[in-house]
Design a protein around this nucleic acid. Structure first.
Length: 486
RNA sequence: GGCGCGUUCGUCUAGUGGCUUAGGACGCCGCCCUCUCAAGGCGGAGAUCACGGGUUCGAAUCCCGUACGCGCUACCA
């Protein structure tokens, strides 16, 4: 009899979805889908100082863009809602009071100043750890009632019992052990009545029947606090899985300073969601074989928490790029066409119109030469407008005094053909080459330069065919004129 | 400082005591293909498995220690 497996992604709305968050969400999602469980989105907005307008919408959009659909969440509801912690304040208060009644929490009226001083003193004494001195634990009921009546600000603290071993099992790290003497009497309810992460998280995970807590490694050190809470309430502890961190190239925790960190940044730069998902999935997990190319549904099939690594992984943009190129190459031309069209609207060629037929030819010609959809434009502008300048190096190397004559011969031949095919272009060029007793390459290079302004690109005859006879002739003539002038 | 977690090619990783002269991928280099650039194919360089001790006939794999890195140490999450 399996209990229903339920996991959650619980970000705090700080503005955008971090790629590390994306991976956490992904692993939760994969684990749920693989095991017929439920995947829940819960917003942990308990810090009023960090509230950012529109952050929740943004988070949801990024998740949706990535294709990680959830079964319950703030925008779609669910039986365990609400899914915004700021809407559950009374629940936390109620549970905090219960904790006080059973002796596992207490009111604390200490001022920020006293706490500050306490900390400084402990540091000066070089005490091994800095923590609250349980000063307010000694307050009598009468004293507490009076202070509350006098409207003194207070917090509610967890009462950590000394000399206890707190042991829990982590799916990824195995058994982890803490000494309760090293654990501070964590604040559970702040003086503004909002709960801290620790209380809200545990209460909600229990109430929402979360079976597995899959989250970043930064939470490992606070897990004993959570375990104390579960035990104090008499609740069954969920299974824990702490994921390795995503790192900057210098191995520090992935941060904004050293590159893009928001999912939307990658989306805006033209990364395919398939590639980002694929890449991020492999940062800390693999199936145990050599496979590296996956679509989301294949990831679901292959995923298991047991195969998640323990150590942090550097986010290597170069590998992401290559994965992006590969995902791009495997897309159908039809899909690519739609993407190219929306890209075109954003480009300098927005005012021009191109037939699907022509765009499809460009896609076919460039597909194996690009890593991003926008490169169907930026890497080959010559498909959209005639070249304005010609690569200098190629001129020096390929443009000889006799080149104009050679190219004119070519023009003369193709001018006579109606709607020349690729083969027609090739035949014409072969003929000119034979007449001149030259290798084809000797003609192709200057031809490419004349027609595209560049020295690299798709196959010569594909290029000519896509441009069309009139355009080809026009461009050759222009090239002859402008290059000779120099 | 304390506590916790980690440590295999530059990077992501395979490897769970003998199959390993440590495999793959990205990147890099070379060759092939070829009108160029890609893509593709083939090959190469690149890891004394952080270090030092054990255990064992045998260790990247198990144990201990050290070093280093990272995380946490808030009325932030």
């Amino acid at each position: 009899m399996d209990k229903l497996l339920r996991v959650r992604f619980a970000p705090s709305p700080t503005g955008y979805l971090h790629v590390g968050g994306l991976r956490t969400a992904l692993y939760n999602y994969l684990f749920a889908r693989k095991n017929n469980g439920k995947f829940i989105l819960r917003i942990e907005d308990t810090d009023r100082n960090r509230y950012v307008e529109g952050a929740v919408e943004n988070l949801i959009n990024s998740l949706k863009w990535a294709g990680l659909d959830y079964d319950e969440g703030p925008d779609i509801g669910g039986v365990y809602g609400p899914y915004m912690q700021s809407q559950r304040l009374n629940i936390y208060k109620q549970y905090a009071k219960e904790l006080i009644n059973i002796g596992n929490a207490y009111y604390c009226f200490c001022s920020q100043e006293r706490l500050q001083k306490l900390r400084e003193e402990q540091e000066k004494q070089k005490l091994p750890q800095v923590k609250y001195d349980k000063h307010c634990l000694n307050l009598t009921t009468e004293e507490i009632e009076k202070k509350i009546k006098d409207k003194l600000p207070f917090v509610i603290r967890l009462n950590v019992k000394p000399n206890q071993k707190i042991i829990f099992n982590d799916i990824i790290r195995g058994q982890v052990e803490f000494d309760s003497n090293n654990i501070d009497d964590q604040i559970l309810i702040k003086s503004d009545d909002y709960p801290t992460y620790h209380l809200a998280n545990v209460v909600d995970d229990h109430l929402m029947k979360i079976s597995h807590v899959i989250r970043g490694e930064e939470w490992l050190s606070s897990t004993p606090k959570h375990v104390i809470l579960y035990d104090a309430f008499g609740w069954e502890r969920p299974k824990f899985a702490h994921l390795p961190l995503l790192l900057n190239p210098d191995k520090s925790k992935l941060s904004k300073r050293q590159g893009d960190v928001a999912v939307e940044d990658y989306r805006d730069k033209g990364y395919l969601k398939e590639a980002l998902i694929n890449f991020v999935a492999l940062l800390g997990w693999n199936a145990g074989d050599d496979r590296e190319f996956y679509y989301l549904n294949e990831l679901i099939e292959a995923f298991s928490l047991e195969r998640v690594n323990k150590s942090g992984a550097v986010f290597d943009i170069v590998k992401l790029n290559s994965l992006n190129a590969e995902h791009l190459r495997r897309k159908s031309n039809g899909e690519l066409l739609q993407m190219l069209k929306t890209e075109l609207i954003k480009s300098e060629f927005a005012d021009l119109s191109f037939s699907d037929e022509r765009l499809l030819l460009i896609i076919e010609a460039m597909k194996e030469r690009v890593s991003f959809v926008h490169e169907f434009i930026s890497n080959c502008k010559y498909f959209y407008k005639e070249p304005e300048e010609y690569e200098l190096k190629s001129i020096e190397k390929n443009w000889k005094p006799e080149t104009p004559d050679h190219l004119r011969k070519f023009i003369n031949l193709i001018a006579q053909i109606n709607n020349p095919s690729k083969q027609d272009y090739e035949n014409a060029l072969t003929k000119v080459a034979e007449e001149l007793n030259l290798g084809k390459g000797k003609l192709i290079h200057p031809l490419r330069l004349a027609v595209s302004g560049q020295s690299t690109g798709p196959g010569m005859f594909d290029l000519l065919y896509i441009l069309g006879k009139e355009e080809v002739i026009k461009r050759i003539e222009k090239a002859i004129e402008s290059i000779n002038v120099k």
